[in-house]
């Protein structure tokens, strides 16, 4: 069993640390429930540096979505704090964009593709000329320039998720949160979309937190992978993905190092599940 390639952040040497882009400290979330509170996230502490691409994996039902909602300011944590570029997140921050898993339900079916991408910009107060520019650019970036006047339901699932990505990109966020964005698209489309996201991340100055249940995807995409435990969630392990920056669906996935990392992450997740079974888990006390 390969060892984790790198210990967590602590090893980054002395000197003044640059301000993290996203700083999560002691995040805890318990849902009140009907007399039986459910502890979804127990204690999460991690940070994303400016421009990083970090993937979060964990066993299913491990509170990934809860975590993401707390980060996006869509849900208040029970305790702990989230900071975006040094400012505490209390509601949805203006320099953060989200791509949801359910593309079919996160796009407005009554708006065209163009209007879907433009809507957040109107609300943001972006000028008309600049808006048009951003919409054109972001649709071109996801390869959908020709579909600007279509409605989302006229497009395939993969194309719809591209629209959602274009909308997030046009918003010009500092941080891009992606919640299992490719879980519902077919395998080939998925590969294309993964490369698209890598490409966008490298071209734009954006920090990406990518939540997935797919270990291969996490290792393929990320610079770092955080492995979560089963609920109530803690940070189980963390690994730096020391694969070359230039990634390719064929070559990267053939790389022995890819297989090692993948196996390591897989083992960690198995361990996370086993821990739960042994301790009987459950949201007690």
């Amino acid at each position: 069993m390969p060892e984790p390639a790198l210990p967590p952040d602590t090893s980054q040497g002395s000197g003044p640390m640059p301000e993290p882009m996203l700083d999560v400290v002691g995040l805890h979330k318990t849902y009140p429930g009907d007399g039986r509170p459910v502890e979804a996230v127990r204690d999460l502490t991690f940070r994303l540096e400016h421009g990083e691409f970090v993937c979060v994996v964990g066993p299913s039902g491990c509170g990934k979505t809860t975590l993401l909602k707390c980060l996006a300011g869509l849900m208040a944590p029970t305790s702990g704090r989230v900071e975006l570029a040094g400012r505490p997140v209390t509601g949805p921050p203006a320099d953060l964009a989200v791509v949801f898993q359910e593309y079919g339900r996160s796009l407005f079916p009554w708006l065209t593709v163009r209007a879907n991408v433009e809507l957040p910009l109107i609300e943001k107060g972006t000028g008309k000329a600049r808006r048009r520019e951003l919409v054109e650019e972001s649709l071109a970036a996801v390869g959908l320039s020709g579909s600007a006047d279509a409605h989302p339901w006229q497009l395939s699932g993969g194309m719809q998720q591209r629209v959602a990505i274009a909308r997030a990109v046009a918003y010009e966020p500092a941080v891009l949160l992606m919640d299992e964005p490719f879980a519902a698209v077919d395998a080939q489309t998925r590969g294309d979309l993964e490369d698209l996201v890598r490409d966008i991340w490298r071209r734009l100055d954006v920090t990406v937190l990518f939540v997935t249940h797919d270990i291969d995807e996490a290792v393929y995409l990320g610079q770092r992978v955080l492995v979560l435990s089963a609920a109530p969630t803690v940070l189980q392990e963390e690994v730096r993905v020391d694969l070359p920056e230039e990634r390719d669906q064929l070559d990267t996935r053939k790389d022995p190092r890819f297989a090692e990392l993948r196996a390591w992450a897989y083992a960690e997740i198995q361990r996370a599940k086993a821990d739960v079974h042994r301790s009987g888990a459950g949201p007690r006390e």
């Binding site: 949805p92 957040p120 609300e123």
Partner: peptide
């Protein structure tokens, strides 16, 4: 999900 989308993008 659509309601969350609106909130996340500050549409209110």
């Amino acid at each position: 999900v659509l309601a969350d989308t609106c909130r996340a993008f500050g549409v209110r």
